[in-house]
Amino acid sequence: MTARIHPLLGAFAILVFLFLLAPLVIIVGASLSDTTYLTFPPQGLTLRWFANIFEISAFRNTAITSFQVAILGTGLSLLIGIPAAYALNRYRVGLPKWLGTLFILPILVPEIVFGFSLLKTITIGLGLPVYPSLIIGHALLVLPYSVRVVGASLASFDFSVEEAAISLGCPPLKTFFTVVLPNIRAGVIAAFILAFITSINDVSISVFLTGPGISTLPIQILAHMEQFFDPTIASVSVLLMLVTVGVMAIVEMTLGLTFLTK
């Protein structure tokens, strides 16, 4: 695709990017405002709202929970997702087609329905504590990334290389770790990042699976907003945006950002 761009179309695109980025700039501005209410442009500059975050223990605790759940949930999803993705690509013939669909069900089924059902049947029905329920919910939520993104890497992997290694005397499991895994590294990293981001930002599942003393950061932000409408929320949001910047830097260093349009 190559063609000339009409100036009007170019101007429209610039407006779209302003629309996309301006709200984020506004949040940053609001977080620095020396007022007790949210406003933009900031009136006076202060970092006290950032300091305030650290005085509210709920933010610290939920941030830690969110991070743990995201790491554990993503880890679990990769643990069961990579073997599944491998089998789906390696033995394409002979595995039923619905298996592929089964693994993307967590995306297909509305998140909020999944969260509610999990609460109803597993957490309350079977009496599973909230924290493991939360991890299970997040692991399943991000499973499609593990299967599909790793699967896309495996789809372009030449399995005769694996057979070559085995024919040279390398046992199958060792072959997987020394030959297959290094070749699908990009897919695994991408799956991890996408899953981690999805998990750490999740609301619809977490909102059902929080209990006394256990909550995630996005849920805590929602709860805080119902009571206080001060710049603290803006500064928490800025910190979360910094996490995004960090993630994008990691993506850029490992995969290159253009990866994300594929």
């Binding site: 984020l24 506004i26 949040i27 406003t39 930002n201 609301v203 996005p218 907003m225 945006m241 994008m248």
Partner: peptide, 13 residues
């Protein structure tokens, strides 16, 4: 990559 909560919150402001 920025969360739903943060992005919705911007529109509250």
């Amino acid at each position: 990559l920025t969360g739903v909560v943060v992005r919705s919150f911007a529109w509250l402001i």
